[in-house]
Design a binder for these strands. Structure first.
Length: 358
DNA sequence: TCTGGGGTCCTAGGACCC
DNA sequence: TCTGGGGTCCTAGGACCC
């Protein structure tokens, strides 16, 4: 028996859930995003495969999507329904004998499992998820988390794919560094400035220039990504939130001090609901503001005393905003409350996009 | 036609103390 | 008159992911 990492990823998750309860939408271009109104300021959360054929992608403004496919069906994001579907999926994964399940998001998880035939296990998991939820998923198989995660894309839709030390370079070597999980456009650009463009370039790069460019922790981490190396340990410790925040893009830019203050109070009230539910007080307030046309700033302030008082959080956010001293119209405001850590701290300290050692 | 909302972690640099 | 290191706390801001 060998220890394997499986990465289970639901196919077109939000769109698939919507099609389940609206079967007449099967086969049609379906776009889930915002309030389902493509004339509003909002973006695509998930596009069905049919919608993707028109060039519609996640993160794209709804207004762009409707131009690409005027006949697409636009639906609002319905969080409670997706949460329920997600819970059934994760339950199913946990029920698989010997599986250790680490959630990565609503619609994906790592599954650690000892097996001689990971493809057979992957197929069994796909069948179990389909039976329990009528939803399809793809499964990446790897000898590390990074390789399993990257492998999933080659298995989509409804398939499996295996990436290990043996075929990593053959499959990934000529691809751009951006194809790696954890390398976004900015890091890809900085790597290119070092002459590193492909995964093979990165895998062969010595640590020193990476450390110089990205720092002592991140530099070697990025190098390891190029090799597909890294942790193979799937950790099922329940995730504990560090912070809760709310942000809103306004359909019309905010201009007057009164409407700005009112908007911040609304956000602070919502944030307090969330941290009360968590039972941990706010110790630091983060303000995020996007001025029109598109300049984003963020500021943080530690509170003298942890608090659940929405007025304190709102006043702190307003003070941070005042300090920015920028009177351009505002198109987005965000208030985030960093919470007091739980007794004994975060254990183990970890996260999804974890960077650095080990 | 401008570009969501929920998160996490990392790096750098200043302030301050010993 | 010039000026060491080490450590911690805090803020600013960047980057990534789903």
């Amino acid at each position: 028996m060998t220890a394997w990492v499986l990465h289970v990823d639901m196919d077109q998750f939000l769109a698939a859930v919507e099609i389940l309860r609206h079967p007449e939408l099967a086969g049609k271009p379906v776009v889930v995003g915002g309030r389902g109104d493509p004339t509003e300021r909002a973006v695509v959360s998930t596009a069905s495969y049919e919608a993707r054929e028109f060039g519609i992608r996640s993160g794209m403004p709804l207004k762009t999507a409707v131009r690409k496919c005027p006949d697409a069906v636009f639906l609002p994001v319905d969080f409670p329904v997706y949460e329920a579907a997600s819970a059934r999926v994760m339950e199913t994964l946990r029920a698989h004998p010997g599986a250790v399940v680490e959630l990565l998001g609503w619609d994906e998880a790592f599954v650690g499992i000892d097996t001689d035939d990971p493809e057979v296990t992957a197929r069994a998991i796909q069948a179990a998820v389909l039976e329990a939820t009528q939803l399809h998923c793809s499964v990446g198989i790897g000898d590390t988390k990074v390789r399993a995660k990257v492998a999933t894309d080659f298995g989509k839709p409804r398939g499996t794919y295996r990436l290990t030390e043996d075929n990593w370079m053959e499959v990934m070597g000529d691809r751009p560094t951006k194809a790696l999980w954890g390398v976004g456009p900015r890091i890809a650009e900085r790597l290119a400035s070092l002459g590193i463009r492909t995964v093979r370039d990165l895998a062969g790069a010595p640590d020193e220039p990476l450390i110089e460019e990205f720092g002592p922790n991140t530099g070697p981490h990025i190098g390891r990504l190029g090799r597909g190396a890294g942790s193979a340990t799937v950790d099922d410790t329940p995730w504990v939130a560090r912070a809760h925040g709310r942000e809103t893009t306004y359909q019309h830019n905010l201009q007057s001090p009164e409407e700005i203050a009112a908007a911040i109070r609304v956000l602070a009230d919502q944030v307090v609901e969330d941290i009360r539910a968590e039972g941990r007080a706010c110790m630091r307030v983060h303000l995020k503001v996007r001025f029109a046309p598109f300049f984003t700033a963020s500021r943080i302030r530690k509170l003298d005393e942890p608090t659940y008082d929405p007025a304190v959080i709102a006043d702190t956010a307003l003070a941070l905003l005042a300090k920015l001293d920028d009177d351009r119209p505002i198109r987005l405001l965000g208030v985030r409350a960093e919470m007091v850590p739980p007794e004994g701290g975060y254990d183990p300290p970890r996260s999804h996009g974890r960077r650095g050692s080990p």
